[in-house]
Simulated scan of single mutants.
Amino acid sequence: MPTFEPWTIIKVPFPYTDRPVRQRRPALVVAAGDIQQDHGLLWVVMITSADNRGWPSDVPISDIVVSGLPAPSVVRTAKIATIEAKEAEAIGRLPEADRETVRRLLLGVLAHATN
């Protein structure tokens, strides 16, 4: 099984919250390391087309070539999931220019969850 790092963009069966279906789609790895080594899991956030209705916490991906994506897309930081690493396939990396915004939004959510 490949080893993944944060900021890797993968293709994976991503679970939906509003229906019992999983669709193979891009996602951003936000945690791997020990969680992958010890449990075979990854924490990921959804990536979706920039053409979809935007959410306040969406982060536009600045370079689709580096990301490996076929069309302009956004990181949907509000949709996080735990997936099995064995189902993931690396396709690219989140451009460095976009990482701080994603990090800030995710840390903000976690800070509110732990208060």
Rank of each mutant, 00 (worst) to 15 (best):
P95F: 07
D63M: 03
T82N: 02
D63E: 00
S67R: 02
D51H: 10
R99T: 02
D51L: 11
L41F: 13
T82A: 10
G54Q: 10
W55F: 15
V74K: 07
S67F: 04
P60R: 14
V44P: 00
V74L: 03
D98P: 07
L69N: 01
T82H: 04
M46T: 11
A90V: 08
W43N: 12
I64F: 08
V66M: 12
S49N: 06
E89M: 13
I47W: 01
D34M: 10
V75T: 10
R53L: 15
D58M: 05
E87N: 12
D34H: 13
D34P: 12
E89D: 09
L42G: 02
I83Q: 04
W55E: 15
G40V: 11
A50F: 02
D34L: 14
D58C: 01
L42W: 00
R76A: 13
D98C: 05
P60N: 11
W43Y: 14
A78L: 10
T82C: 07
D51W: 08
A85C: 04
H39R: 15
G33N: 12
I80E: 14
R99A: 00
M46R: 15
E96G: 03
I47Q: 06
A90S: 09
T77M: 09
R93M: 13
V45T: 10
D51R: 15
V75N: 05
K79P: 00
A97H: 00
N52G: 05
V75D: 08
E96M: 10
K86G: 10
V59D: 00
H39S: 14
D51Q: 14
S62R: 06
R53Q: 14
T48L: 09
A71N: 05
G54M: 07
K79W: 11
G54E: 07
P60L: 10
L41T: 09
P70T: 00
G33M: 06
V65W: 08
D63H: 00
G92V: 01
A88Q: 01
M46K: 15
T48I: 07
E89L: 12
I83H: 04
G33Y: 07
E87P: 06
Q37C: 09
K86M: 12
H39E: 13
D51T: 12
D51G: 08
G68R: 02
E84G: 13
A81S: 08
Q37K: 15
S73A: 13
I61Y: 01
L41E: 13
I47E: 04
K86S: 12
V65H: 12
H39T: 09
I80G: 10
G92T: 02
G68D: 02
L42E: 00
P60V: 10
A85N: 08
R76Q: 14
N52H: 14
E89C: 09
D98H: 04
D98I: 04
E87F: 08
L41W: 14
D58K: 06
I47N: 04
I91K: 02
D63C: 02
R76L: 11
E89Y: 11
G54Y: 02
R93W: 15
G92H: 01
G54S: 12
I47Y: 03
I47K: 05
V66N: 07
I83F: 04
E84C: 13
R76N: 11
A50C: 03
P72A: 08
E84Y: 14
A78R: 11
A78V: 11
S49Q: 06
G54I: 03
P70Q: 02
V75Q: 09
V75P: 03
S73R: 07
G54D: 09
P70A: 03
I80F: 06
P72G: 04
D51M: 09
